[in-house]
Amino acid sequence: MKSRFFGQVTAAVLVNSLYEMRNYPVVLVNTVLSPLSFLLVIAFVSKGGLIGDAIEGGFIMSMFSSGVSLQGDLSHLKNDFKLQDMVVASPTSPFTYVTGMALAELVYSIPALAVLTVLAWIFIHPSAVQALVLVGVMLMMFLSSIAIGFTLATFSSDIVQSFAFSRLISTLFSTLPPVYYPVTYIPLPFRYAAYLSPTTYAAVISQNATGFLSEPGASIAIDWGIMIAVTVVLFLVAAKKARWREV
């Protein structure tokens, strides 16, 4: 049973990343450039002052974008190739399919994560505990975004609609919120709006852990609580509302 799960997950990784990367290596350039381009802008504009925040923002955007990309890829495979229909009528469960497809998205992020890790090593020097916090935050971001991505993909009926949603979600959750710089840079009335995005909590926790921001312990605990709650809720919504067998 375990080996069957492993094989089914591997099949998804092969289809959604390894085979595609081998044939279209240019997609890798895009996954590296997106998070790094914002990082560079923030680093230059702040004259290097915010490079640490921006590197952490790069990690968050990279992980969040992986999940959002899942939506486009699942939708593409489902609507254009009917692959999901073939998998639904097989012993593969929706959980296994999504796990494989999500891991495939992570594979795409490896080059960006590698570059960001080197930059973090140079500019942040995180301790083991700080690194653990960053990894935890990244994991939460990834889980939240794949829950959103899978749910939306099961509803999408065409690829144009799907990519439009991907871009919208990406803008709303990783471009607009203060991911690459401290939330305190946003004037107060607008700061509340920033807290509507889970990526804001992720950025605050990361920046606080590495000393770029100083928040009281209770506030950070609440931020963790909200981030975890949002992830759980998104997973529950995916479990309840995502369509595997269509209705």
Partner: peptide
């Protein structure tokens, strides 16, 4: 069961061998 849906298409960035192979892995082989 096995299904070939209406309008099913082969994934362009894969080969026939990869197409059949991954489908079988999804089926548990």
């Amino acid at each position: 069961i096995a299904v070939i849906p209406q309008e099913a298409r082969t994934v362009p960035w894969m080969t026939p061998r990869q197409t059949v192979l991954t489908y079988l892995m999804w089926r548990g082989c």
